Measured scan of single mutants.
Amino acid sequence: KELVLALYDYQEKSPREVTMKKGDILTLLNSTNKDWWKVEVNGRQGAVPAAYVKKL
């Protein structure tokens, strides 16, 4: 499985998103959308802005 690093804090704004903190390591589930990537963090799945994460 592919991992990404959170470059910034992000507070979810809808139920389809997830909150992450700078430095979090997230499991990347889907990166086909260039703006929003689906990730899993702390057992929750949701979208985060692609510009806020970097593939490891």
Rank of each mutant, 00 (worst) to 15 (best):
Gly46Ala: 06
Ser31Met: 11
Trp37Arg: 00
Leu56Gln: 05
Met20Gln: 01
Ala51Thr: 10
Gly46Lys: 05
Asp24Asn: 07
Val18Gly: 02
Arg44Cys: 07
Tyr52Leu: 15
Lys1Glu: 11
Asn33Asp: 14
Ser14Gln: 07
Gly43Glu: 06
Lys22Gly: 05
Ala51Ser: 14
Gly23Cys: 09
Lys21Ile: 08
Ile25Gln: 04
Glu17Lys: 05
Tyr52His: 09
Lys55Pro: 11
Tyr52Asn: 08
Lys55His: 10
Lys13Val: 09
Glu17Trp: 04
Ile25Met: 06
Asn42Arg: 11
Val18Lys: 01
Val41His: 14
Gln45Glu: 12
Thr19His: 04
Val53Glu: 03
Asn42Met: 09
Gly43Lys: 05
Ala47Glu: 15
Gly23His: 04
Lys55Arg: 13
Val18Arg: 03
Leu56Tyr: 09
Asp24Ile: 03
Thr32Leu: 11
Asp9Thr: 05
Glu40Ile: 09
Val4Arg: 01
Asp35Met: 13
Ala6Val: 10
Val4Asp: 00
Arg16Cys: 15
Ile25Lys: 05
Glu2Met: 13
Asp9Pro: 06
Glu17Thr: 08
Pro15Asp: 13
Met20Lys: 02
Tyr8Arg: 15
Ala50Glu: 04
Thr27Pro: 12
Asp24Cys: 07
Lys55Phe: 11
Leu26Ala: 09
Tyr8Ala: 12
Pro15Thr: 10
Val39Thr: 00
Glu2Val: 14
Glu2Cys: 15
Asn30Val: 09
Leu56Pro: 03
Lys38Gln: 15
Val18Leu: 13
Ala50Pro: 09
Lys13Ala: 11
Leu3His: 10
Ala51Met: 11
Leu29Ala: 03
Met20Ser: 00
Leu7Cys: 12
Asn33Trp: 06
Lys34Ser: 13
Val18Asn: 04
Asp24His: 04
Arg16Asn: 15
Val53Phe: 05
Val53Arg: 00
Asp9Met: 03
Glu2Tyr: 11
Leu28Glu: 01
Asp9Ser: 08
Lys1Val: 14
Lys22Arg: 12
Leu28Cys: 04
Asp35Cys: 13
Tyr8Asn: 09
Lys13Pro: 05
Met20Asn: 00
Asn42Ser: 09
Glu2Leu: 12
Val39Tyr: 00
Tyr52Ile: 10
Tyr8Pro: 01
Gly23Ala: 02
Lys13Gln: 14
Ile25Pro: 00
Leu29Pro: 00
Val18Pro: 01
